[in-house]
Nucleic acid binder design. Structure first.
Lengths: 116, 116
DNA sequence: TTGACATATTCCGATACAGGTATATGTTCT
DNA sequence: AGAACATATACCTGTATCGGAATATGTCAA
């Protein structure tokens, strides 16, 4: 078995920095392909290919308008990533560390009550 | 050029589901390799290999103890992922959508003041 | 219809992965 | 020293990628 396909899920699709850049631009609103080509300075075929991957994982939607294709962000596809990574926020956030202290404290008291 | 190395950054390292599983276990505390092998039901060499990748991107630290190597989570390496994805939270969170409405409203009023 | 424009697809070559299996390295115990 | 244990590394194979270049598909305009 080789590495999972880039289209396997959002995690794999978004591992490519260029695709994140594309999403970052689309976060500002719907865009035709050529806008992305100009704004990101990448070749048109590569943009189309990256967009295909993003479409396959549901991170973007397309709409046809004349000879243009307008791409729009669909952030829903990124929710699983957020859901997973947010559980690690405590490892660097002071706010969560403080919360951990409180919870640990409560736990101590509970144990005290239970045993005495 | 081929796909970026799995060790290129946390995004690539974490695109592999097995490696996320490993981190999820380590979130519960320090563990020797064999614990991971048993808990995740994967072959020992694969676990070692995944741990190497996670080490190279700084997502885990190792500590030697006798013949064991205790691996510990280092969530800091995941912060860039969180920082990136959290900006998309508005696309699925009702709370953020409500905030967007408020901000849009403020913007309208400002424009009104400016032009009259 | 011909041409200009917008986008997608195809073919290429190089690269690196992931799992499997075998083996190497290092440590503890007797 | 030798055996048992814990972990890491090496080698193999199939596969999917990425960028580049060329080309195909589709739409509008004169």
């Amino acid at each position: 078995m080789a590495r999972a396909a880039t289209t396997a899920d959002a995690f794999n699709a978004v591992a490519e920095p260029r695709r994140r850049e594309i999403l970052d631009v689309l976060a500002g609103g719907e865009r035709p392909v050529n806008d992305l080509v100009r704004l990101l300075g990448m070749a048109q075929p590569q943009v189309s290919k990256h967009l295909r991957v993003l479409r396959e994982v549901g991170a973007v939607d397309v709409r046809e308008q004349g000879r243009q294709r307008l791409y729009r962000l669909n952030g829903h596809a990124l929710k699983p990533i957020h859901d997973w990574v947010k559980n690690y926020e405590r490892t660097w956030s002071e706010r969560f560390e403080a919360l951990d202290v409180v919870l640990e404290d409560l736990k101590q008291k509970e144990e005290g009550n239970g045993s005495e």
